[in-house]
Design a binder for these strands. Structure first.
Length: 480
RNA sequence: GGCGCCGUAGCCAAGUGGACUAAGGCGGGGGCCUGCAAAGCCCUGAUUCGUGGGUUCGAAUCCCACCGGCGCCUCCA
């Protein structure tokens, strides 16, 4: 059974096969770089990262484009307000985006085009639409004529006649559209409130591209048409993706994208996470409070992408503890590797195989990560159980098989790999201080002086060092 | 008004007509282990899936109604 994905176009699960053998082309809507992205934005990006990683896990080559929106109302207003240029405004936020991106363990896409680098191509696309009678110029602006594009709105399954007309006309933005439902491709005319931060020459006079234009152009530039998968947040289904389709298909006469995937939003304490509501958290906010990216990633990819995810600090604590559990079982397997041929046989190989099969089955089912996590945690429990029975000494091949399976699943989850990089450095002095305390404590225990042993353990705990006594001696680790 | 989603144990969350006698995580209780802990394991926790009806041999899963929560409807991931 192969991978099945829920396609917004058909509103049902469809068997996924790339058009080109062995190679998947994807377009994923990226951030608007007028401010730092919040963890809700990253929830969507992480869902797409899981998709990317799983496609690779299945053996496909992936070509992914993720755009950076550096020209739209928000970037322009922010630049004007601060009296700086668009590039000057967006550059630090692009950098911040990549910092957060990497800290959350997202794999890098193949292309990160910025909208402003493609204005000539956008103009070309608009010209094509005008030539084909799908767009018209009015007072320096160009609009898409939805009445000339019969399938308009099919992605969102909206009846265009039901669209509310003229709702935005009352504000300070009055357009010369023939029909209020038409959308703007090129914004010309006088825009004193936008200063000169975003003005390009065009056949229709100075102006700037409409927001939807960039994604059509960037996808057509970097990917075949049609390409395999286009994804983004649910809020983009209408109008953004709807308009993207109209622009691209209108200009080329060919289908734009085959599969459309949409991720539901993250909530913060049960309410929509959004900048405009002031209800959001950034990765920095969380890291400053001591939360680890591995736990944040674990929480953000714990649930199905088509289900809302309620982000709370309590859930984040739970997530952190569950990551600990996996790290512990992996550590235990590593130290249990034994070349000793006398080591008792275990069921590890068999359990491992079953876990991988369950993992794949779950992921094949529209990326059901919740169930896939279940397969991993079941393996963790069973492995611990086997290790208990075997006295932590198992044949190397069996322990290695389990370790390989955990690593394989984590190639998709990407959580343990992140956690590895989070281990704090312990200075040589601190290390020797800890070792000295442990030696001292071992002596005290051997002598039956438990009061002293416990005092030393408490002192270590005060320094964030946790002590565990095992049959083969005490070991320590830093509290995470 | 239009389109759509959700309500499963204390919390998070899979399952969406029959091997469900409902995964998994976190937390709680009991036990094993330990000098005591920690870690780990074992046992325990929903006779039940928002409520009320209906369809069916069979429903958490389908239909209807109601209650509660949420998203989108022209530049929000």
């Amino acid at each position: 059974m192969g991978l099945r994905l829920y396609n917004t176009l058909s509103r049902r699960l469809e068997e996924f096969q790339p058009l080109e053998q062995g190679r998947v082309s994807t377009y994923t809507c990226g951030p608007t770089v007028y401010d730092r992205a919040h963890v809700g934005n990253f929830r969507t990006f992480l869902c797409e990262d899981i998709l990317r990683r799983y496609l690779k896990w299945k053996g496909y080559e992936v070509v992914q484009v993720r755009n950076l929106t550096d020209v739209d109302d928000r970037t322009i207003h922010a630049a004007v307000q601060r009296g700086i240029g668009l590039r000057e405004l967006t550059q630090p936020y692009i950098q911040a985006f990549f910092e957060d991106h990497d800290r959350l363990g997202l794999e890098r896409a193949e292309y990160y085009p910025r909208a402003t680098d493609y204005v000539p191509q956008m103009i070309e696309l608009v010209q094509k639409l005008v030539e084909r009678g799908l767009a018209y110029e009015a007072d320096g602006s160009v609009y898409f004529d939805i009445s000339e594009f019969p399938s308009y709105g099919s992605l969102a399954q909206i009846d265009t006649s039901a669209l509310r007309e003229g709702e935005r006309e009352a504000g300070d933005q009055v357009y010369d559209k023939e029909d209020a439902r038409d959308f703007v491709l090129w914004k010309g005319g006088e825009r004193p409130e936008e200063g000169d931060v975003a003005v390009w020459d065009s056949p229709w006079g100075p102006g700037r591209p409409g927001w939807h234009l960039e994604c059509s152009v960037l996808a057509l530039t970097h990917l075949p048409q049609p390409f395999d998968i286009h994804s983004g947040g649910v809020d983009l289904i209408f109008p953004h993706h709807t308009n993207e389709i109209a622009q691209a298909e209108g200009a080329t006469g060919k289908p734009f994208a085959r599969f459309w995937l949409h991720a539901k939003h993250a909530l913060l304490d049960g309410r929509k996470m959004s900048k405009s509501e002031g209800n959001y958290l950034t990765l920095d906010d969380l890291v400053e409070h001591g939360y680890r990216p591995s736990a944040i990633r674990r929480l953000l990819v714990s649930g199905h992408y088509r289900t809302e995810l309620n982000f709370t600090l309590a859930s984040l604590d739970d997530a952190a503890r569950s990551v600990e559990r996996l790290i512990e079982v992996r550590r235990r397997l590593e130290v249990s590797l034994s070349e000793d041929v006398e080591a008792p046989r275990t069921r590890l190989a068999e359990l491992t195989q079953r876990a991988l099969a369950e993992f794949e089955e779950a992921m094949d089912d529209d990326l059901n990560v919740a169930e896939a996590w279940g397969a991993l945690f079941v393996l963790a429990r069973e492995a611990n159980s086997e290790l208990d029975r075997a006295g932590d000494r198992v044949p190397a091949v069996e322990a290695q098989a389990a370790l390989d399976a955990v690593a394989s699943m984590d190639q998709v989850f990407g959580v343990l790999a992140l956690a590895e990089g989070e281990v704090a450095e312990v200075s040589a002095e601190k290390r020797s201080w800890i070792e000295a305390r442990l030696t001292e404590r071992a002596r005290a225990r051997a002598a039956g002086d438990y009061a002293r042993a416990d005092a030393i353990r408490a002192a270590l705990a005060g320094e964030g060092v946790e002590v565990e006594d095992t049959p083969s001696g005490s070991r320590w680790k830093l509290r995470r």
